[in-house]
Simulated scan of single mutants.
Amino acid sequence: MENDSAQHVRFQNLQEDQMTFNQVFEHIVSFMRSRPAGNYRLIVGTDSQIHPQKTIFITGIVIRNKGKGVWACIRKVTVPRKMLQLHERISYETSLSEEVVSLFTEERKRQLIDIVLPHIYQGASFTMEGHIDIGAGKKNKTRKFVQEMVTRLEAIGVEPKIKPDAFVASSYANRYTK
Rank of each mutant, 00 (worst) to 15 (best):
M1C: 10
M1D: 14
M1V: 12
E2I: 02
E2N: 01
D4M: 00
S5H: 09
A6M: 09
A6I: 02
A6L: 12
R10Q: 12
R10K: 15
Q12I: 04
N13V: 03
T20E: 04
T20D: 03
F21R: 09
F21S: 07
N22K: 14
I28H: 03
V29L: 14
S30Y: 05
R33A: 12
L42F: 03
V44G: 10
T46D: 04
D47G: 03
S48A: 12
Q49P: 00
I50P: 06
P52R: 08
Q53F: 11
F57H: 05
V62T: 07
R64H: 14
K66L: 15
G69V: 11
W71H: 15
P80N: 15
K82H: 09
L84Y: 06
L86I: 12
L86R: 10
R89G: 05
L96G: 02
L96Y: 05
E99C: 07
E99S: 10
V101Q: 04
S102Y: 07
L103G: 06
E107Y: 02
Q111R: 08
L112C: 06
I113Y: 07
D114M: 02
L117I: 00
L117E: 13
P118M: 05
G123D: 12
A124T: 07
S125A: 08
F126C: 06
T127I: 10
G130R: 03
H131K: 08
I132P: 03
D133A: 05
D133S: 00
G135D: 11
A136E: 11
A136N: 12
G137Q: 13
R143T: 08
K144V: 12
K144E: 15
Q147T: 15
M149A: 15
V150W: 07
T151I: 01
L153K: 01
I162T: 09
P164V: 11
D165T: 10
A166K: 06
A169R: 06
Y172F: 15
A173Q: 03
A173C: 05
N174R: 08
R175S: 02
K178E: 06
K178F: 05
K178P: 04
